[in-house]
Design a protein around this nucleic acid. Sequence first.
DNA 1: AAGGTTATTGAAAAGAATTATCACTATGTC
DNA 2: GACATAGTGATAATTCTTTTCAATAACCTT
Lengths: 141, 141
Amino acid sequence: MTAKKGFIRRTKQREVILDVLRSTRSHPTADWVYQEVRKEMPNVSLGTIYRNLKTLTEMGQALELSYGSTYSRFDGNPENHYHFVCEECGQVTDLDLPVQKQLEEDVSDMIDGQVSYHRLEFYGVCRDCLSLAEATDHEAE
Amino acid sequence: MTAKKGFIRRTKQREVILDVLRSTRSHPTADWVYQEVRKEMPNVSLGTIYRNLKTLTEMGQALELSYGSTYSRFDGNPENHYHFVCEECGQVTDLDLPVQKQLEEDVSDMIDGQVSYHRLEFYGVCRDCLSLAEATDHEAE
DNA sequence: AAGGTTATTGAAAAGAATTATCACTATGTC
DNA sequence: GACATAGTGATAATTCTTTTCAATAACCTT
């Protein structure tokens, strides 16, 4: 073994992708990034864009705006309320927090537009998955 | 003309779907709903589930937890901050609101779990799309 | 600088969730 | 009951994203 295991190499592709990301405030989609990067590296592949956006996000150099899962979830309670999403098991729980309706007016004034609703979501690890992780840790000892 | 135009008919399928939705607090995916509904209506099709979940959401009887668009957006600024999403043009803008980091502790205590981050998003119509709509209204007069 | 290891790439195929299509069915009005 | 058409089941098509795999290139060791 010569190269350090799990090391992240610096590549021209990832560099250009990060430059593109930093050059805009438009919160681009993967495909938009792809088109931009192609201007500088015509042979770059879309797979590389996705791979690196993921890597950059994991490295804390970028933010991904989407749910962990690609599919929608539905709620029979149509009143606005906030959620907690467990990143381990995917469970979604309702939170008993007061809904700050007046925030919508604040934002509506800020952007000089019209706000119809807002969503607040918390991400992390739920109690069950936490104790499960502990149990596994002990096992490994 | 006999039947009222644009009328929404009551169907057994939609009824069962709403019952299933209301019977759980698990924020199910479309596929989970599909499996449940099939127990009562084995011939129901997945397309019907999607159609009705959409209809129910439009009717205000259900809530959909997902972004309008299916694809992710990325941000070169990895600091947590809040967003406004225009439902007309899809544009995403950063909001200059203070990030309430302490909310995460509150929630963490509430659920007895671990919160690593949170997201707050506002949805509506941006200024540009608003004035565009106005212009079009005038045209139609 | 050369050699070796393996992370990363490009190209293309596969995957997963959702939406569209279309002939048929069944709801609601008259 | 008869009509008009919204809704359905079945399936094909889309769309975004991930995976696969042989070839390449980054980085460590010598």
